[in-house]
């Protein structure tokens, strides 16, 4: 979709060198927005580099830890409330357990898993005992017999199986 003012080409590119004929800026230079002023930014803000450089694992661990603590706190609170007057505070049951990033994750499947041929993706009723690959029929089995160990491993890893070397 054309943005507002796309028709008017404004030549706002600032040239750092003082050559009389400024060089034609490359497309990348034209696309760069580094030179635009940013008055809306707070000059006194210092970003918290430590907090910013957390990795995914740390963030998710922290999230789980926090959830655990929160549950513990709620449980205690509930017990205290019951001790005091034995009367349940009228709370919406739907809002009782607060969802967190970890708690809304879909659980592992409990349905029986279908087996598919690792090579073609067709139904795979057979398993090659040597490599662990599932296969559709005899012709695929012949292909599997010709596979190198690494290729077989690659096929398995597509299904998320990382075989242990016997």
């Amino acid at each position: 979709m054309p943005p507002k003012g796309a028709g008017k080409r404004k030549n706002t590119t600032v040239y750092s060198d003082d050559s009389p004929t400024p060089p034609v800026p490359t497309l990348a230079e034209q696309l760069s927005y580094l030179q635009y002023p940013r008055p809306f930014k707070n000059p006194n803000y210092t970003k918290n580099t430590n907090r910013r450089t957390k990795n995914l694992k740390a963030v998710l661990t922290q999230e789980r830890e926090r959830e655990k603590n929160e549950r513990e706190r709620r449980r205690q609170e509930k017990e205290e409330n019951m001790d005091v007057d034995g009367e349940q505070p009228a709370e919406d049951p739907l809002e009782d357990d607060l969802p967190t990033y970890a708690s809304i994750e879909a659980p592992p499947s409990v349905l029986p898993q279908r087996r598919y041929c690792d090579i073609t993706g067709l139904e795979g009723p057979y398993t090659d005992p040597a490599t662990g690959l599932r296969y559709h029929d005899k012709s695929i089995y012949e292909l599997i017999r010709g596979l190198s160990a690494t290729a077989a491993k690659e096929y398995l890893s597509a299904r998320g199986v990382n075989p242990i070397v016997k």
């Binding site: 659980p107 499947s109 598919y116 998320g160």
Partner: peptide
């Protein structure tokens, strides 16, 4: 069925 790609999770239907 994400399990066919190695993700141990229930699929959309489930």
């Amino acid at each position: 069925s994400p399990s066919m790609a190695g993700i141990d999770s229930a699929g959309l239907g489930e």
